Simulated scan of single mutants.
Amino acid sequence: MNIAITGGHITPALAVIEELQKINGVTITVIGRRKALDSENTESFEFEQVMKKNLRFINLKTGRVTRTVSLQSIYNLFLFPVGFVSSLFILKKIRPHVVLSFGGYIALPVSLIAYLLHIPVFTHEQTIRTGFANKIISRFCKKVFISYEESADDFPRQKVLISGNPVRSEILMVKKKLFSTPARPIIYITGGSLGSHSVNVHIEVILDALLKQFMVIHQVGNVAQYGDWERMSKRKSEYYFPVKHIMDDEIGWVYSVADIVVGRCGANTVTELIVCNLPAVLIPLPWSSRGEQREGADFLQQSGVAQVFEQDRDSTELLKTIQSVYENRSKYKKMYEQLIPQRTRILSASKKIADEITAV
């Protein structure tokens, strides 16, 4: 069975890929974005991860809807037809039996062309607030997998299956250690797959104070625009370990040694925190699509397992919040007991999705 996987959310896609690879006779092609940003030559996290799994990767250049009017947004309008034509050629070439979408602007042309070619399409919605692309894809796909019951009303009811948000099995497995752990508490700081310049700036300001008490693992990202990696990598020391990305074979060890997590709160981070029962300081991206990071941050804070820090506040307040969450980490961890049903659903999501799409 030949399966094409596409979309903007690579982490749950990788989790389902891992499950599909257990099935004999399944071949997988990933259609995605090779470069981290259109304006840079840096390879994307999704491309790096897919290459590590020795899977076929096909780059797709297409347009996206932006909220501002600029030269880039005008350029995007011209890329829309390019994306649809390219999708036609790609699908004609690889001839998949099924297309599995994970939403986002990359998934829309691939899914629509697949439908026109009579290829069954499935899609997964990662967040509570449904994305624009998935609202369209849901009109012609066979089934919509959702992570949260709250998003069910956004789709045709007969197509909805509450699967949960798939997570990589690696987050619960220690495969590769990055260093020998010191006799001090460890903070894992993450800005998402691309890293976060705003988070990096805050950490840069309070880093000396953090290193008096903590060992810091800092996922900086590799976006060249702000030069964060070039600056932060020069500060590597006994108690500061900056990296561009945390890879699949490293993330389980990082979560196993971390006392708390600090950073952005996209759907993947929220899901992984629930699975790993880790107290967190969450810094929602103010302009995240449909406010999805705010939703995730508020959900975990209201559940009593995290604190929210607004990125426009002073860096010294972030330091105090980190210290407070660390000092009260036992209380936060205990509150995760109420999220056991969500954790159970998350851990079965990959198999549920793999079983559905291979039953076609």
Rank of each mutant, 00 (worst) to 15 (best):
P166H: 01
A297R: 00
K142E: 09
I136Y: 07
N268K: 04
A267E: 12
C265P: 03
R343F: 02
L210M: 06
L178R: 11
V325W: 02
W287V: 14
Q21N: 13
R294T: 12
I186A: 12
V99L: 04
H197Y: 15
I217Y: 05
K175I: 02
I146G: 02
R56I: 14
T127F: 07
Y239A: 08
D154E: 14
E356S: 06
T127H: 10
T130E: 08
R33Q: 10
F122W: 03
R345K: 08
V82I: 15
D312T: 13
F241A: 07
K244D: 09
V110C: 03
I119G: 00
I128Q: 15
N59G: 06
Y255G: 01
G25T: 10
A114N: 02
D314F: 06
V201I: 15
G83Y: 11
V270G: 02
N134C: 04
E43A: 11
E295Y: 13
S86E: 11
G191A: 10
F102C: 07
L347R: 04
N277R: 12
L339P: 01
K175W: 04
N134K: 05
E230N: 15
I283N: 02
L285G: 10
V98K: 00
I10D: 05
S233K: 10
G304N: 05
K52D: 15
P12C: 01
F145K: 02
S237C: 07
F47G: 09
T42V: 15
G131T: 08
R329N: 07
I357S: 00
E170K: 04
L278I: 05
I274E: 00
N54P: 12
I171E: 00
M247F: 15
L77T: 10
W253I: 03
T271E: 01
Y75S: 06
T271D: 01
K35A: 07
T42R: 14
M215G: 08
A13E: 04
V174N: 06
R157D: 09
T68W: 13
L172I: 01
G131R: 04
A354P: 02
A133R: 06
Y115T: 09
D248V: 07
K22P: 08
R129Q: 15
R95S: 13
V160W: 09
K320L: 07
Q49H: 13
Q307T: 05
K352D: 06
E327A: 15
V257E: 03
T316C: 07
P182S: 06
T344Y: 09
K320W: 04
